[in-house]
Design a protein around this nucleic acid. Sequence first.
RNA 1: GCCCAGGUGGUGAAAUUGGCAGACACGUACGGUUCAGGGCCGUAUGCCGCAAGGCGUGAGGGUUCAAAUCCCUCCCUGGGCACCA
Length: 832
Amino acid sequence: MQKYKAQRYEAQKTESKWREIWEKSGIYKVKDKIKGRDNFYHLVMFPYPSGDLHIGHWYNFAPADVFARLKRMQGYNVLSPIGFDAFGLPAENAAIKRKIHPRVWTMKNIVTMRRQIKNIGNIYDFSREVITAEPDYYKWTQWMFLQMYKAGLAYKKKAFANWCPKDQVVLANEQVIDGRCWRHPDTLVIQKEVEQWFFKITDYAEELISGLEKVDWPERTKTMQRNWIGKSEGTIIQFKILNFKFKIDVYTTRPDTLFGATYMVLAPEHPLVEQITTKQQKDEVRHYITNAHLKTELERTSLEKEKTGVWTGAYAVNPVNEEKIPVWISDYVLLSYGTGAIMAVPAHDDRDFEFAKKFSLVIRKVIDPGRQWPEDRAWTGGGLLVNSGEFTGLESADARAKITGRLKGKGLADFSTQYKLRDWLISRQRYWGTPIPLIFCENCKKLAENPKSQIPNPKSSKGELENPGWIAISEKDLPVKLPSLKNFKPVAGGKSPLARVKSFVNTRCPKCRGKATRETDTMDTFVDSSWYFLRYPDPKNKKQFTRKDRLRAWLPVNMYIGGVEHAVLHLLYSRFFTKFLRDAGHLEFDEPFMALRHQGIILGQDGQKMSKSRGNVVDPDNLVRKYGADTVRMYLCFMTEYAQGGPWNPTGILGIKRFLDRTWSKFLNFKISKSESTSRELERLLHKTIKKVEEDVRNFRFNTAVSALMILFNAMEEKESVSKNTWETFLKILAPFTPYFSEELWHKIGNKKSIHIELWPQYDPALIQAGEYDLVIQINGKTRDRVAVSRNTQRPEIEKMVLGREQTKKYIGANPIKKIIFVEGRLINIVV
RNA sequence: GCCCAGGUGGUGAAAUUGGCAGACACGUACGGUUCAGGGCCGUAUGCCGCAAGGCGUGAGGGUUCAAAUCCCUCCCUGGGCACCA
């Protein structure tokens, strides 16, 4: 090997120099259209401005930028924007704790994080930055709300919320610690009904499932979304209630087990519970319901899973055999799913079985699994029907259709599709969020509810009055600005801090000019982030959320990259928004993100999730100061497979630092060979590496791409001299990983323009194919030898040559050859 | 409990998807250096064995000429969901 003087690359100086030059020259400014280039919208999930950038942000942003840069070099016009998801609870908490205004706290954090993000050296076009907490932005969030409202997709209803009885305020899940209020550890949190705004995402349940077919997303993410939406096909069956005129509907996916229904269970909140409960059972039932509401969701689940319930005293009649069965209530039945009532078949459902055993209810087998099954467990699979009257002997699947069909004929049942998905609760009783642009007018409500009224009021599809008394604020009066406040504590009675603002609460009705109040709730921050990707193409537009031609130029997003923790909520809400906006005529596509990739989660060195309270947060600034951004970027690519993540392991970073130092030293001491030809063997490796890096980055295999670059450099280092052309190609394929370093060497070798406007080098497939390969020789599947073989040697020739080899003969010995397996380009296996 | 990932050297990890297990790095050892060093360069490095050789991808079994990869049973780790009829 050629010896040369080792020299250290000085990252700090180089990086700040190029940062400045790039910013001045605006090489990362994106035009909406460039002739001869296709647009590519590359998006990373925008961060919440929590204070400092941590290593997890870097892990998201840096390898994603390698992908974006490679696309750019391949001739695409790449839009890679960044912004801040700036509303949310932590700002309010910080405000209360440190007495800074949430806006001041948030904007301070944004300034810090923007500077840190710039250090990474990504191709972000900062001129397109969006901040969801700015009136310029939330004006359009409010506009979106109004579109939903006008389309009948926003409505108000009561919903249970965590409630601190001491402060009389609604609590977020994270403010409930072990079932107690975070500020009053002696106070148990209860569930209380509060008026809330909802979006009817359930209207789109079916399309949210079918649309998944169209997108290139990880299969596990699609599965999670499907499970979340939870479509199931079953039957709704009516059960008569003894001594009452009405019937109660139950939903079941197993009508084939109807003969085994030995009791019925209602959710404690079921509206008919009150009516059917007998006098003797009244106290017990009331007690049970009160208790259920004292428990938070957390408590209910953290307690042991023993079933609880009480009998209402009433009986229902099984429509298929007129059998009288008792009606119970229990919190294992949920009001929000199906009909809020079930027929219980203890022999063939695990939960019903447990419940029946505890309360000594009848367990009757009606399905024969056709194999041995322990007595102490429910058989939940299919089989042949037994004890089922005329249906006995049928196969489960067949019986489902036949039993439903029979009851349907009598008007007692019907097929039904149900979803687990619930409507999206979007109102928050909080200050730091987008105000909901509505006014409530008591006078207009009375008019709307008066049947003689002349004013036509919107009705829902079920014929109910829609949001009577709620008036949408005119679009030209948007934004409804978030007033400045000093006190951010929620107002007792469950109201948002905005209820303290006089001008907000005392206003005029735009319709009747009478006294009215503004809605004081703000929106869930998931609303802000459900459409932000539509704003980047035209972030300063004052007339529209984005111009149509810019939407056409960029959307839908070609590649979306972010954490798997958003696999359901954010990604589902964004898809819902997109579909809604398409139906409202504002968009021409129906899926927002055509491709999606997740980065893994970087854990602390202790293997735990990074958090300030654990004290295991890795600060990237220290690393950047020590090694430079390029080293950190490349190390994050190299450390592990991108989607995998894992504990932070800093030990390997030296390997990357050495790689860059060695490249630097070799370069400064290099000889450019006069003749343009590098050795053929190096030339081949170079082309192989171009191909490998290209493919690996496309598949988000950044770690093996880096390794390929190292292998190439190790080979270059062996040479006395390397041609200028080879050096330049090497720098180009290195450039997406180490933008500063590559730029510096690119200029040192004599180029005047930036390496980052260069095109990706083309590899020569013929060159890669050519030459020899190592043929593996196996005897009985064990590798015994290998030999270099030319690519175009045919099988008979190879067999003859292999069998003639001493090494082969030795292992075969006197045994007769049974079989020879030959895999072209790979191995030969001789079976004896 | 259910669902989804995953388990490979001292460490992070590779393995063209059934075809050379451990690429590329880190660490370690020894040697070199125009050597303060946690610098740089070289050699070695899965385990057992002086060697020939044997054994090795969480454990056990199976399919195959050939298994980290496919199938069955079990164990462990991480993530998600919380009784969805």
